[in-house]
Amino acid sequence: MEKIPVLKIGNLLLISIQTDIYDSQGLQLQDDIANLLQRHSFRGVILDISSLSIVDSFMGKIINNIASISLVMGAETVVSGMQPAVAITLVELGLEMPNVKTTLSLEKAIQFFNEKFNRETDQDGSSQE
């Protein structure tokens, strides 16, 4: 079964899920991200689901798992581009994503990390002064 590609951009991991995926692909993705985070020091994970039309409780659990794993390993997870119908469905389903930051688009997710990293650099700079 095809693996979902994980792109490495600077200190970010970018995953764009384009179509319905098999459960096994989801589990594989979870493992891949955990491994990458262990070997390198990535600071953020962006999961772009703008093309994904269904997120059921299994897929939701995978997203939550990725977020929790990342958090433990020192990275923050941002889910971008969730479709309105998917969002309503998840709310009706009662699925919560407490550790997940969300943004309206992939661009905004990148912008979020840029701001965050810059803020941190500034703080480091000022503490040295």
Binding site: G81, M82, V86, A87, I88, V91, T102, L104, K108
Partner: peptide
């Protein structure tokens, strides 16, 4: 409240 929760999931 559900609307607000859904909006939050979308990133707004």
């Amino acid at each position: 409240l559900k609307t607000a929760a859904a909006a939050k999931l979308m990133g707004a």
